[in-house]
Amino acid sequence: MKGYVFFEEDRCKGCQLCAPVCAKAVIEMSGRINVRGYHPAEAARPDDCTGCGLCARMCPDTVIRVYREVPAKAGKG
């Protein structure tokens, strides 16, 4: 199952709650500084994302959007 995760970097306050809950360790705190002066979270290994959504469930600031490929079978339905 291929997932896609997107971070609205400028909303992030660098609280780091999302990183530890990702089962595939996709997320890391980036070296950049965002407009708020925090190191935002980012998808360091986006290809490993399965679209489970745990990171978005932990995020207090709705920084993260998550999508998932529609499985082929269901797609034809």
Partner: peptide, 10 residues
């Protein structure tokens, strides 16, 4: 992204 469903949005 094309061909995906929403898992989470605000």
């Amino acid at each position: 992204p094309k061909g995906t469903e929403i898992v989470y949005e605000r």
